[in-house]
């Protein structure tokens, strides 16, 4: 019983940061690869093409 509770506690403590990490990663990809703001687009232009993102 104790073991079950402990395992579940670990899962919960890992679940939230894991979801946060995925969300942060997705936000970063959106910023570097997709946002069309001119300054970002120009700076990331070559990377967007080379990484296969739709660029312009």
């Amino acid at each position: 019983m104790t073991t079950t509770t402990k395992t579940r506690a670990i899962s919960t403590s890992r679940f939230v940061p894991a979801v946060f990490a995925v969300a942060l990663g997705a936000a970063l990809i959106t910023l570097t690869g997709h946002v069309q703001a001119a300054a970002l687009h120009d700076a990331a232009h070559d990377v967007r093409h080379a990484t296969g993102f739709p660029c312009h």
């Binding site: 894991a18 990490a21 942060l24 990663g25 970063l28």
Partner: peptide
């Protein structure tokens, strides 16, 4: 970009 991918991958 690859840090973003790493966050998703490690998640």
């Amino acid at each position: 970009t690859y840090t973003g991918y790493a966050l998703i991958l490690i998640g």
